[in-house]
Amino acid sequence: MIQFTLANFDTLMSRTVEHIALVSLAVGIATLTGVPIGIAITKSKRAAQIVLYVAAIIVTIPSIALFGIMMPILSIFGYGIGYVPAVIAVLLYSLLPIIRNTYTAINNVDPALREAARGIGMSPNERLRLVEIPLAIPVIMAGVRTAVVLNIGVMAIAAYIGAGGLGTFISRGISQSDPRQLIVGAVAVSLLAVVVDYALLALQKQLTPKGMAKIIQAG
């Protein structure tokens, strides 16, 4: 096992990098779209209900089924297999935790702070930039973390549609009845999830406004 790992170390590394890159790309796009959507739906309860409902439904679709749905649609554009459907699937899965956390965090900003911000003459944009988003960051980041950890697993399955990444070890291990590959792939995916979770937690602490760190720890 160790021999196998050492012998394939280069491949293992490059697949890990590939795996991270794919998840980052997908969650990155999901963050860039999900956060604005989460903020936008705080303006309307009705819109929030609809958006959160749709996002929740997407998450309930099993990943294999989602790939199945996406392949015929994307093959129209010539992207039926490979990393494109994988990234899109992960993106869709990531939207729920990110949108929901953003929405909740912005909505839960103390109304007194919002009134203070309005009262001293901040425009709605200034309010978002200077008060609401900074205060919401810890919760938004928690959503991003959930999305990443969840989708490191989903991305492993995407190896079946040729997305690459660590899942390749697992799928080959199964098809070639090679437990070494299977175990190395599975362990690597789990380890990656744990390590990335910690790294993002550290980033979350870094991004949390200093004045709030204590309050959050105490709460």
């Binding site: 103390d110 007194a112 702070l113 009134e115 203070a116 911000a117 009262g119 001293i120 200077l130 008060v131 900074p134 205060l135 406004p209 200093k210 004045g211 709030m212 309050i215």
Partner: peptide, 12 residues
Amino acid sequence: YVIQQIGLFPNM
């Protein structure tokens, strides 16, 4: 404007 709940911004 001084609001009753003080309302200092905790992030600043």
